[in-house]
Write a protein that binds this DNA or RNA. Structure first.
Lengths: 260, 260
DNA sequence: CGACTAGTTGAGGCCAGTCAATGTTGGTGG
DNA sequence: CCACCAACATTGACTGGCCTCAACTAGTCG
């Protein structure tokens, strides 16, 4: 039964019924920061036990978001950040004429929603790429807690700032790299993030379609498909649908101008 | 006589002498937030008199940065944010192979430096496009003050978040717009920002070269030059070197898919 | 005045987009 | 469980928008 994720979402804001997120909110006695596997990556990184306990206390709810379902849309009032507990999300911006640009892929431990902070409403849209689970962090309460906890405040600033840096990296990619370099850069980025989460850096499954990769990289799906084929024929990777095996990291790095 | 902008910059960090900023730091009794013309845009936006006074107190120095001089470089330790009092800056990221991508143009009232927050060192470089003047805001002190002042904290988060949103807008531009749309979008953005600062939205002087515009928009300088000529021949703008007159805003807006 | 930087314009080539046909995969319902 | 359908993916042929290379002009500063 679909319910609102956060009680604090103003009901006065008109959201078409069909656009409402079909996310399932629940309180899970076992789902706490303290026991969370991704704590080291997330907002609770490096906090003392007491702060973690207080963080736990302010989680409104945890929530499951099924594949293809929307966590928030552009225009929705901002009230919370979302820490990904399990799963993958894409974020995207929409132009007025309907064109869309995927601006990020987010996995376990990442925190979503900072785009909404400045205007009090979200400026982009977050969609689950697979069945996922998030922790909702009501921002008002988080801010209040951060006031007393320098380490938490620092984490918040860090997360925000790394979103800024990520944006700059993407501008570099979109503004000055050629298609092959873009895809290589994308694969290396994924590899690093999987590795940091304890998975293989050389063998992983993409969670997104060719078209979604293309949108993210400012290309077309055909170009992405051709590039996969080419990198495979050159022996740098092995591709089977969405299953990727990286065979020659060094060559990929050389491709994007990184030594090693 | 060149001196360090901030006494708190660790001397242990090796910076080639030639790379040091030739910025002139000074304390100017007349230069206070309270009297600053751009207060409404800047970090002091909407703060009560007491907070503004305390903000003033923590400014280490004001500083003049001459045209072409560097405010900070990628790799330099982060210690402060910089509010632009007068002037214009560009920020840019450098790829390892030397390619550079301009990631933003910043004018009076904008706050620079958020890129450095996550790694404790700057990830991009800021260069003055004309003789400028900035207020240096030592971050440690700012953070401490923000702790007690919710409105200041809010402003900080807002500024950071709008940097995130700006990045997303640029990804949309670079990832899915064609050259003409990019330039139109750029001009409209400049016009809006000049207007917000009390200048004409229809007549202004560019502070950057064709090459810098091209870098920002992911194009070449020749393409930018041709586009200016084309827009002029179509009667949408009038160009004379860096002097721009916008003749048909509506047409420019239609070009980027905005109604109006 | 000469050297240099910034900007304009033209000719031609190439990278990635477009259009189209076909193959493959995975979810759904009989 | 399998058949079916739609979504996803691959590949080819062709096109075109932007890049590259190059020549030339205009303005600036020793």
């Amino acid at each position: 039964m679909p319910i609102d994720l956060l009680a604090s979402r103003p009901r006065s804001f008109a959201v078409p019924a069909h656009a409402r997120p079909r996310v399932v909110a629940f309180r899970d006695a076992g789902a706490h920061c303290a026991s969370c596997g991704v704590r080291g990556l997330c907002i609770a990184h490096d906090l003392d036990a007491e702060t973690v306990r207080e963080l736990d206390a302010l989680f409104g709810t945890h929530a499951r978001v099924a594949k293809r379902e929307v966590l928030y849309r552009a225009g929705w009032p901002f009230s919370a950040l979302y820490a990904i507990r399990v799963g993958t999300f894409k974020t995207l911006t929409l132009a007025e004429d309907g064109r869309e640009q995927i601006t990020g892929y987010h996995m376990t431990g990442d925190v979503l929603g900072f785009d909404g902070l400045s205007e009090e409403r979200h400026s982009c849209e977050a969609v689950a790429l697979e069945d996922s689970e998030v922790c909702a962090l009501p921002f008002e309460k988080l801010d209040e807690l951060a006031r007393a906890k320098p380490a938490l405040r620092r984490n918040l600033f860090r997360l925000l700032s790394s979103d800024v840096s990520r944006g700059q990296d993407m501008m570099l990619l979109l503004g000055s790299m050629r298609s092959e370099e873009r895809l290589a850069s994308f694969l290396l980025n994924l590899a690093r993030r999987f590795q940091r989460r304890g998975y293989s850096a050389s063998e992983f499954a993409l969670r997104m379609t060719r078209e979604e990769i293309a949108s993210y990289l400012g290309l077309t799906l055909e170009t992405v498909s051709r590039l996969f084929s080419r990198l495979q024929s050159e022996g740098l990777i092995q591709v089977q649908g969405r299953a990727i095996k990286v065979l020659d990291v060094a060559a990929l790095k050389r491709m994007v101008g990184l030594s090693g």
